[in-house]
């Protein structure tokens, strides 16, 4: 179960999300769309429990959450392979997901040696390979060229089949591929 009831998040005087209520269907992927400043990342962080709402609540009974953060958040001193195994993913599975995200050649390289797009795919590989009850992805396709973004969107759809996920993106075409449980369009509060 993942839902919000009258969720309001403020940063100081500024209200970023105002009275947002939504039930996120189980076993499907909900895509959050919206322009800059519409509170997409804030919503993902609130769903993950990283932010305390000013009002309303988030009801989340999923115990394990796999995330793609707004930043890649990779361990700089570890190789790509170790960045996956260090969160408890087996080496075999890690290699498989590096292949799926088209960065198998980078298995022995550290994040500093990778391009922005490769780092993003490494963060995506980590999140997809991690067994969780809930998947929260914040702009998982950012920094990818249009063709790669579409291929990764298709991979996300296939990998998250039957799983509960919320994905933030501004890529409308990718959203159509990934959204198996509908889309939500956020607007900046008036």
């Amino acid at each position: 179960m993942l839902r919000t009831e009258g969720l309001t998040v403020t940063f100081g005087e500024k209200t970023v999300i105002s009275g947002f209520s939504h039930v996120f269907p189980e076993g499907g992927t909900t895509v959050i769309l919206g322009g800059s400043g519409s509170g997409k990342t804030t919503l993902i962080n609130a769903l993950a429990g990283s932010l305390e709402p000013a009002a309303g609540k988030v009801i989340n009974d999923n115990k394990t959450v796999s995330r793609v953060f707004q930043e890649d958040r990779l361990i700089p001193s570890y190789t790509s392979l170790k960045n996956l195994t260090c969160v408890g993913i087996s080496e075999q599975k890690a290699e498989r997901y590096l292949e799926k995200t088209e960065i198998a050649d980078a298995a022995g390289k550290r994040p500093g040696e990778l391009s922005g797009g490769m780092k993003r795919r490494l963060a995506l590989a980590r999140a997809l390979a991690f067994d969780a009850e809930l998947y929260l992805f914040d702009e998982p396709l950012s920094g990818l060229d249009p063709d790669t973004a579409i291929r990764m969107a298709a991979l996300i759809r296939a990998e998250l089949e039957g799983k509960t996920a919320v994905i933030v993106t501004h890529n409308e075409e990718a959203a159509r591929i990934m959204a198996t449980a509908g889309t939500v369009r956020l607007e900046p509060p008036q």
């Binding site: 959450v65 796999s66 995330r67 958040r73 260090c86 969160v87 408890g88």
Partner: peptide
């Protein structure tokens, strides 16, 4: 703190957090 939040989210055991984030 961003890496620590990542480690928390992925339930990284304390020994691995120590080796991957704190010690480096």
């Amino acid at each position: 703190p961003l890496l620590l939040e990542m480690a928390e989210s992925f339930k990284m055991p304390f020994r691995r957090r120590l080796a991957a984030i704190y010690i480096p």
